[in-house]
């Protein structure tokens, strides 16, 4: 089984995406042998009212409840976000919460970020932090979002010691630094931008953070799925137990999925 923890539905304003509807994504998953995908709403990133994107995501993923696992997105600068989050968690049973501070105009370390992270921790849900959607060297001139930085991650990990982090689409992660910040055991890192062979990022992260810290992710539909499948195939020399953890069990445990 494969669970992909780095996937999105919806439109991206700066590039045409394929397979960005629920039906399209399920067809893509079928082609590549991916059983389930953890999906956030791109529309929620760019709508003024992010919750409209959550509602769309709920409607779309409800058509494929056995394949798509929806993730809420909240904007703590927007009126009534706490009630919106409550609806996502209690009514729609969303399993994690995405924050996009740069796109929504705040910092994870300011009052808005602090409030959102605290509320997410109270729900005992992971926060999903995507380091970037695309490479800044190709960005549209309206795209001014900065990549998330490791130093910010470390700072908020210390400020919110109960909070769990799903880190999607990151590079530059130093496992020793993450472990020192107390993130071992409360952090799941998708390997979509990491190397299994050559630079051996995954090997080093496992050594510092444990095999439970790594999960399959592809960043679909932005990116091809093949690169992450090649990485997974290169992990087949691990023990079967470790391989299955990375392939799907870590994601299932971290998100408390009822499979």
């Amino acid at each position: 089984m494969i669970i992909d923890v780095n996937a999105f539905l919806g439109h991206y304003p700066f590039r045409s995406l394929k397979f960005n509807t629920a039906d399209g994504m399920v067809s893509l998953m079928g082609r590549y042998g991916i059983d389930r995908a953890v999906v956030s709403s791109l529309n929620a990133v760019f709508y003024r009212d992010a919750h409209q994107g959550n509602a769309e995501l709920h409607r779309e993923t409800s058509l494929h409840p056995d394949r798509l696992i929806p993730v809420a997105t909240v904007n703590p600068r927007y009126v009534g976000w706490q009630r919106d989050l409550e609806e996502c968690v209690s009514r729609w049973k969303m399993k994690a919460v995405t924050l996009v501070p740069s796109h929504h105009g705040y910092s994870l370390t300011d009052e808005y970020g602090h409030a959102a992270l605290s509320r997410i921790a109270e729900y005992d849900l992971p926060v999903v932090l995507t380091q970037r959607f695309e490479d800044r060297r190709q960005r549209h001139h309206w795209d001014i979002a900065e990549d998330l930085e490791v130093k910010t991650l470390v700072e908020v990990a210390a400020a919110h010691p109960r909070l769990k982090f799903l880190l999607s689409n990151w590079i530059g992660l130093d496992g020793g630094r993450l472990a020192e910040a107390g993130l071992r055991g409360r952090c799941l890192i998708d390997f979509s931008r990491l190397h299994v062979i050559l630079l051996k990022d995954v090997t080093r992260l496992i050594a510092a953070m444990g095999v439970e810290s790594i999960a399959f992710g592809s960043h679909m539909p932005f990116d091809y799925v093949g690169p992450s499948l090649v990485k997974l195939a290169n992990l087949e020399t691990m023990s079967s137990a470790e391989y299955e953890k990375i392939s799907w069990q870590n994601a299932a445990a971290f998100l408390k999925l009822d499979l």
Binding site: Y32, H195, V196, I197, L198, L199, Y224, V225, G226, P227, S228, L229, V230, K231, N234
Partner: peptide
């Protein structure tokens, strides 16, 4: 250009 797994996978899934 040293993104070896990624670039093999890209051609395989195109």
């Amino acid at each position: 250009d040293m993104t070896m797994e990624g670039c093999v996978g890209k051609i395989l899934s195109a």
